[in-house]
Design a binder for these strands. Structure first.
Length: 256
DNA sequence: ATGTCCTCTCTTAGAGGA
């Protein structure tokens, strides 16, 4: 089973690129972030025509997450992360598909930092920590994937010294991310490629993609019972070079 | 500060977010 995550940066503006990539790589499950579309403007029919069922949580202008699946039933288990009733951002959707719980998340960016946006990001990480722990208790296979907006280590950014004060790289943000990992989750990309420079995001500014000035911020966290089923993983980085591309590239794993 | 791209609106230019 191939599971992919892709921050599309506007699902309607990105539709030709998204459909081209789906046709090219045919993932079984796809988690999308940054739909930037209200609930009623999600391109459901175009995705059905491409062979994908979908569930989604839209929002006007910002955020928005979706899960797509090809030839498999999507049993939605949750939308929205527990722990803050007044949080109206569409940033989490979860489903049970083919025996695996799949959480699709879009973590807050947190900039400018310090400030209220960073505080919201840290609260969100704390809520994710609590929910991740709950998920592990059930003993089911779980994949938590999406745009974490967290650069885990110095090795995951082209020039760490430039990012020290950024909300994607600040010590308290990384610490919160590593606290979640410490529950027993496995960072799938790093598990298979511990030594390789791997990026998932290249800014639109300053020819970042051309210079390979990237960040690794889109992650797959696997529950312990999935680690032996992890066979392959990668970044479809060529997609970032397409016309009208998102600033993220699609990332994927292959489970037996 | 700037660079770029997306979406929305007091819309075809500017603001906000990333």
């Amino acid at each position: 089973m191939r599971i992919a995550t892709y921050n599309v940066n506007g699902v309607n503006g990105r539709l030709p690129v998204l459909l081209r990539w789906l046709e090219e790589t045919k993932p079984d499950v796809v988690c999308l972030q940054e739909l930037k579309a209200p609930q009623e403007k999600f391109p459901e029919q175009a995705l059905l025509d491409a062979g994908y069922n979908a569930i989604w949580q839209g929002q006007k202008s910002w955020n928005g997450v979706a899960i797509l699946a090809r030839d498999m039933e999507i049993k939605e288990t949750r939308r929205g992360l527990p722990g803050e009733e007044e949080d109206e951002h569409s940033r989490y959707i979860e489903a049970f598909i083919n025996g695996v719980v799949i959480g699709c998340l879009y973590l807050p960016n947190g900039n400018p930092a310090p400030g209220p946006k960073l505080e919201y990001k840290l609260r969100w990480l704390s809520r994710l920590n609590a929910h991740a722990a709950e998920l592990l208790k059930f003993g089911l296979p779980v994949v938590l994937t999406g745009d974490y907006n967290v650069i885990p280590t110095d090795f995951d950014v082209y020039k760490p010294e430039r990012w020290v004060d950024d909300a994607l790289f600040r010590p308290e943000v990384r610490a919160a991310f590593h606290e979640i990992i410490a529950q027993g989750w496995t960072d799938a990309i790093r598990k298979l490629y511990p030594e390789e420079k791997i990026y998932t995001f290249w800014d639109y500014f300053r020819n970042a993609y051309g210079r390979d000035a990237g960040l690794r911020i889109d992650h797959f966290l696997l529950s312990p019972n999935l680690v032996d089923r992890l066979k392959q993983a990668g970044v479809d980085r060529h997609v970032r070079g397409w016309e009208k591309s998102s600033d993220h590239g699609p990332v994927w794993i292959e489970l037996t």
